[in-house]
Simulated scan of single mutants.
Amino acid sequence: MDYGDKLFWLSVVIQRKYAEVCAEFDLTPAQATLLCAVRNEPRRMADLAASLGMTKNALSQLVDRTARRELVGRASSAQDRRVVMLSATPTGKVLGEAVYAEVAKRLPEIARNLDADDQRDFERVATAIVDTSDLSPPASNQRVTP
C-alpha cells in the first residue's frame, strides 16, 4: 500500500471509531458533528454549511431531522433577519457536550498499539495538520445578499 492508501484507511479507522461513539448516543455521525459544532454558540447556517463541507440544502435537511428530535433550533439573526442562526437546545447542548467529550476521550484509542514515542509523534503530526488546515468558516461579517 502506498501513502495515499494508508491515509485512506486511516480515515476509515477514524470514521468507524467516530460512528461507534455516535451510535452509543443514538445519533448519526452527521447529527453528532452538527451538535458539536453548535454546542457552545449559535452559528450562521451558511457558515456551518461551508465549515462542514455540505451544501445548504443538505445542511437544511440535516437540521430538519435534528430539530425534530428537539436538539437544535433555528432563529433569525438579530442583525439581519435574512440570516438564519442555528443553536443547540438545552438538551442538544448537553448531548453535544457529552458526545464531544466521549469522542475526545476515545478517538485517541486508534493509536493504542503504537509505542509511547510514536503516540506522541502521531499527536504532534495530527495537531500540525489540523492547525495548518483551513477549517474556519467564511468571515461572518460578510454581507449576505438575498
Score class of each variant (00 low, 15 high):
residue 1 M to E: 04
residue 1 M to R: 07
residue 2 D to Q: 07
residue 3 Y to V: 14
residue 3 Y to A: 11
residue 4 G to N: 11
residue 6 K to Q: 10
residue 8 F to S: 08
residue 9 W to V: 07
residue 11 S to G: 13
residue 11 S to E: 05
residue 12 V to W: 07
residue 12 V to E: 06
residue 13 V to A: 10
residue 13 V to N: 06
residue 14 I to R: 09
residue 15 Q to M: 11
residue 17 K to L: 09
residue 17 K to Y: 02
residue 17 K to E: 09
residue 18 Y to P: 00
residue 18 Y to E: 01
residue 21 V to D: 02
residue 22 C to M: 15
residue 22 C to V: 03
residue 23 A to H: 08
residue 24 E to Y: 05
residue 24 E to H: 12
residue 25 F to G: 03
residue 26 D to M: 11
residue 27 L to F: 03
residue 28 T to P: 02
residue 29 P to H: 07
residue 29 P to Y: 03
residue 31 Q to N: 01
residue 35 L to V: 10
residue 36 C to V: 13
residue 36 C to P: 00
residue 38 V to R: 02
residue 39 R to C: 02
residue 39 R to E: 09
residue 39 R to H: 08
residue 45 M to P: 00
residue 46 A to I: 09
residue 46 A to Q: 11
residue 46 A to K: 13
residue 47 D to A: 12
residue 48 L to A: 03
residue 50 A to D: 11
residue 50 A to T: 06
residue 51 S to Y: 01
residue 51 S to C: 08
residue 53 G to R: 06
residue 53 G to F: 09
residue 55 T to R: 09
residue 55 T to G: 13
residue 55 T to S: 15
residue 56 K to Q: 10
residue 56 K to F: 06
residue 56 K to A: 13
residue 58 A to C: 04
residue 58 A to K: 12
residue 60 S to W: 04
residue 61 Q to G: 11
residue 63 V to G: 03
residue 63 V to K: 03
residue 63 V to I: 15
residue 64 D to M: 05
residue 64 D to P: 04
residue 65 R to M: 01
residue 66 T to Y: 04
residue 68 R to Q: 11
residue 69 R to P: 06
residue 69 R to Y: 04
residue 71 L to A: 03
residue 72 V to C: 02
residue 73 G to P: 02
residue 74 R to W: 00
residue 75 A to M: 12
residue 77 S to G: 10
residue 78 A to H: 11
residue 78 A to K: 15
residue 79 Q to I: 03
residue 80 D to V: 07
residue 80 D to C: 09
residue 81 R to M: 04
residue 82 R to F: 04
residue 83 V to E: 08
residue 84 V to E: 05
residue 84 V to P: 00
residue 86 L to V: 15
residue 87 S to T: 13
residue 87 S to R: 15
residue 88 A to T: 05
residue 90 P to F: 09
residue 91 T to Q: 13
residue 94 V to N: 05
residue 95 L to F: 02
residue 97 E to A: 06
residue 97 E to W: 03
residue 98 A to T: 08
residue 98 A to R: 14
residue 98 A to D: 05
residue 101 A to E: 14
residue 102 E to Q: 14
residue 103 V to W: 05
residue 104 A to N: 14
residue 106 R to Y: 05
residue 108 P to I: 04
residue 109 E to V: 00
residue 110 I to K: 07
residue 110 I to Q: 07
residue 111 A to L: 03
residue 112 R to N: 08
residue 114 L to A: 08
residue 114 L to E: 10
residue 114 L to C: 06
residue 116 A to R: 15
residue 116 A to G: 00
residue 116 A to K: 14
residue 119 Q to A: 07
residue 120 R to Y: 01
residue 120 R to C: 02
residue 121 D to K: 13
residue 121 D to E: 12
residue 121 D to N: 11
residue 121 D to S: 12
residue 122 F to P: 00
residue 126 A to C: 11
residue 127 T to P: 00
residue 127 T to R: 15
residue 129 I to H: 03
residue 130 V to C: 09
residue 132 T to L: 14
residue 135 L to Y: 06
residue 136 S to V: 00
residue 136 S to D: 10
residue 137 P to R: 05
residue 137 P to C: 02
residue 137 P to L: 01
residue 138 P to V: 00
residue 139 A to V: 01
residue 140 S to R: 12
residue 142 Q to S: 07
residue 142 Q to R: 15
residue 142 Q to K: 13
residue 143 R to V: 07
residue 143 R to T: 07
residue 144 V to L: 14
residue 145 T to I: 07
residue 145 T to V: 05
residue 145 T to E: 14
